[in-house]
Amino acid sequence: MAQVTRPKDIRIVTIIALILVLLAFPMLFTPSIKRMGDFIPMILGIIITMQFVSLIGIWHMKQWGVQLFIIMFCIRVITFMFLDLYEFRFFFNIFYSITFIVFFLIHYRKMDTNL
C-alpha cells in the first residue's frame, strides 16, 4: 500500500490541534465542570479523547480522521450549547475548529480511505 505524503500545513495544524486538545484535558477536573453533574466530565472527556484519536488519524493522512474530527466538533458544540457554556472558550473552540476543518477538507481527497 503506497503511503500518502503528509503536507506541511496538515503537519503544523495537527500539531497545534493536538496541543490544544491535550491542554483541554485538565479542564475536565475544574470545579465548574464537576458541579454540572457526575457524568459531565465523562462526556467531555470522551469528546476530547475522540478528538485526539481523530487527530492521530489525520496525522497518518486517513479520511476517517477528518470524519471523526468533524463529528466530534458537532457533538462538542451541541454539548456546550446543552450545558449553556456560552463563554469565551466556546467561541474560541468554534473558531479554531472550523479553521482546522477547512485545512483538513482541502487535503481530504488526497487522504487514504482505509483504517
Binding site: 464537576k34 457526575d38 457524568f39 466530565p41 465523562m42 472527556g45 485526539f52 484519536v53 492521530i56
Partner: peptide
C-alpha cells in the same frame, strides 16, 4: 464520593486510550 469515583475511573480509561492509541495504531 460517587462523583469522584466516576471521575477517577473515567480519567483512567481516557488516559489509557490517549496514551495507548499511538503505539496501538
Amino acid at each position: 464520593t460517587r462523583s469522584n469515583i466516576i471521575l477517577g475511573l473515567t480519567i483512567s480509561v481516557l488516559i489509557g486510550i490517549i496514551s495507548g492509541f499511538i503505539p496501538a495504531y
